[in-house]
Every structure is written in structure tokens, then in C-alpha cells.
Write a protein that binds this DNA or RNA. Sequence first.
DNA 1: ATTCCTGCAAAATCTTTGCAGCTAG
DNA 2: CTAGCTGCAAAGATTTTGCAGGAAT
Lengths: 147, 147
Amino acid sequence: MTDQENRYETIIQKLRDSGHKITPQRLAIVKILARSEGHPSVENIHSQIAKDFPTMSLATVYRNIVLIKSLGEVLELGFPDGSNRYDGNKPYPHPHVICIKCKKIVDPDLDSLDEMKKEVELETDFTVLNHRLDFFGLCSNCKAAKD
Amino acid sequence: MTDQENRYETIIQKLRDSGHKITPQRLAIVKILARSEGHPSVENIHSQIAKDFPTMSLATVYRNIVLIKSLGEVLELGFPDGSNRYDGNKPYPHPHVICIKCKKIVDPDLDSLDEMKKEVELETDFTVLNHRLDFFGLCSNCKAAKD
DNA sequence: ATTCCTGCAAAATCTTTGCAGCTAG
DNA sequence: CTAGCTGCAAAGATTTTGCAGGAAT
């Protein structure tokens, strides 16, 4: 079973377990979130579904994202320009590297993350529960481009 | 000269140099941003000024923040709940540690930051230009509190 | 004197909510 | 059946913008 099928099943199961109905709209949203290809926005999710399901409403996308967020099965990525994008494939906090030109998002594996977290707790006497680590820059393609 | 007086002079000078007028409203906003005590929000800045200057408008606060941001002299901190707060005292990217209970924000010095940036560039082949590093948790006071 | 700035109100986003009808279980 | 869900439209919340009068230089 692929990672994405696995995520899909997990989210659907959590919805069932918490007594929520599995509607076609909900299913379509979960399917896209489980894949989270390119970290979709609300608009993006809505328009993907609206192709085959013209009455799909934005409100339903918003409501379902709130619901799935409350189950801890999707991560909301708010960006400096105010836009939000979502990750239901890796719904736990993790670092992102974002190309400011083509908007590509890469998830790096950073060995130094644990160390940094320890350093934060040591220096500030906080208990760290969560984090948000984003690096912005140019991807290899956009660096090479002429314009 | 204190750090904050220094920031105040720097911002005012940048405004003059770029041909902008120094109005009383602008001055009041810069004064608060230079200090950035507790990392104020737009509402917060506006209401502080409105005490002594009742006609002060929110639009003017927004317009001046856009201007000062464009000069690189204030950092905008967008939070997961959609709120924004500002730092004109340290306007360059730096890590934050935020208490989810009392909303206190601490700026830690992290030796591991350089290493992490290198690790990101090595692993992703991006050129990193900017970052946004926030840790969320409980500060020592809130950890100790009973409720 | 000019040019830029401000206050006000309207507009533009983005997200949430009330309601009446519909549907999954 | 019936609790929960959806679509629509209206309401919120936050930020931006057009305009005419006013202030800084």
C-alpha cells in the first residue's frame, strides 16, 4: 500500500471513528488532502473537485478542512502573503523549503532539528510543543533560469 | 544611545532619505515599532496612538507598515490563527519562541541556525535567502501555573 | 506652492455562519 | 428515521484603495 493510500484510509477511518458521515464531497476532499501534491490551497482543492462536481461549494471545503484539522490529520501552512496551503500527507510539523519564484515546496530531512529544539528549550526554559520552520529561496531550476 | 533610540533614528533617516514626509502619525507609529515591546499588532499600535490622537485611523497604520516594510525596517510575523504582529526592533529574520498560553514571544540565540541553513542548502540544492523559524510551547511561568 | 499624507468610507479578500433542504447510516 | 451535511447567501474579519481636504517641506 502506498503512503498516500495509507493516509487516505487513516483519515477516513478517523472520520468514521469520530461519528462523521462519509459524503461524496468529503471523500473528494480527503482524497486530495491525502495526496497533497504541491500542497494545495482551498481554492485549488475546490476547483479540482468542481471540474466533476459543479455544485461543490467553497464553504464545504473550508468546513471539512476545519474538521480534519481538528482530528490532527492535516497541517495548515500559512504564508507571509496571507495565503494558506495544506498538507494532509505529512500532517505533523516539519520543515519546508519554498521557492519564492516557482512556489515549489520541498520537505527536507534535517538532522540538526533535534539539536535546535534542545537548544531552544535550554536557552528559553520553554517546553516546545510545536514548531514552524520555513526556508525561502530559489530552487535549482529557478537559480539556473535567466530572467 | 540605546538600541531602541538607535532603531528609531535609523527608521526616520531611511524615511527621509527615501523622500517621505515625517508626519506626527508616522512618527508615532515609528516610535512604537522601534521599541516593538511585546511585538505589537496593528490594532495594538492603533489603540496606543488613539489614546492621545483620537482621529488616528487604522488605514494609516496599515499604510505606514507597508511603507516601512518596503524599506526593510520592520518584520511581519503572521501567526497560525491569522493574526499579524510586528518587529521593528529586529527587522531581520530570526527565530521566535512563542508561549501558546500567554502569547509571550522570546528571541533565542541559536548556534545551530547556521548549521541548519547549510544542511538545507546541501540537501535541497536551494539558495536560501530568508527564513521563518517559530517554536510554540509553554513558557516557564505558564508551565508552573496550575490551571 | 506642491507633493505627499491622512481620514473616512467603500471595496476587496478570505473565511465563517445561518438556514432550509437533502442524505448517509 | 434523523442527526449531520451541503449549497447558497449573508455576515465577519482583516487589509487595501479612491477621494477630497490638509499638512510637511
